[in-house]
Design a protein around this nucleic acid. Sequence first.
DNA 1: ATTCCTGCAAAATCTTTGCAGCTAG
DNA 2: CTAGCTGCAAAGATTTTGCAGGAAT
Lengths: 147, 147
Amino acid sequence: MITHKKRFETIIQKLKDNGHKITPQRIAIVKILVDSEGHPSVENIHAQIKTDFPTMSLATVYRNIVLIKSLGEVLELGFPDGSNRYDGNKPYPHPHVVCIKCKKIVDPDLDSLDEMKKEVEVETEFKILNHRLDFFGICSDCQAGKV
Amino acid sequence: MITHKKRFETIIQKLKDNGHKITPQRIAIVKILVDSEGHPSVENIHAQIKTDFPTMSLATVYRNIVLIKSLGEVLELGFPDGSNRYDGNKPYPHPHVVCIKCKKIVDPDLDSLDEMKKEVEVETEFKILNHRLDFFGICSDCQAGKV
DNA sequence: ATTCCTGCAAAATCTTTGCAGCTAG
DNA sequence: CTAGCTGCAAAGATTTTGCAGGAAT
């Protein structure tokens, strides 16, 4: 099983391997990326760190997200409303189910997706490299009116 | 069969029905939305119209896209690079296959998607209202090096 | 006649960049 | 030491908004 701790070490190691320095800011950002269950936004990450690291700059968060993305260790989720959120635990494409009320994000298991990709390759003659699949709806809590 | 002309009339009618005036700018924008095979961007629409309508403002394009979106008559495709493109012919969610080299967009037929949606509803207990499925890859032309 | 629409410019977001000083290795 | 990183502020890019004049119905 892949724990948050292992993910943390994987990313830090990859940063080192590629000649990047391990700064306190970087550590803090990576920690949040792998600890968050809730797919944090840049603003979110910044706010969390700023609490006990008041000089942390938004630019630094952006720069590090770009860096970690370029190493393939975080997945960027761009949503229809223009916001971006990040997943440091599963940095490869995978489906999401998003509650449009409470913004909760769940990762469903969908085995049929791989098959669908092959279907698309046959039908369109594209070589498929990547994909994005998101469902939007109301989670059971919000349906029940728990807000 | 649904022709571009019918789509044009449908949208214009819907605008009228909802008490919106039919201005030359509006007509030009709707025309491009339904005539384009290539999923135009806002910038794109603006540029096309500006040729023979030099005072056309970007703001007007944005405002009308928002309006037509609110009537459910155009689909907005937000891409990972931050760009938005629009589909006025099929304004309901449907899968896209995007060539990352030449930016061509193809609409594949994927019957299995509806089933997948139900699968997700059962598994997550969400009420699914909407979805987004995009595949990214290289089209056959670009694979062949035709650029 | 009125109500809605447009163009322009300014504002609002979100993200990136230049630079001088600082710090990890 | 010294290459790379950070913070700050300014710049970019994209989309939205306020306002006064203009157009559709």
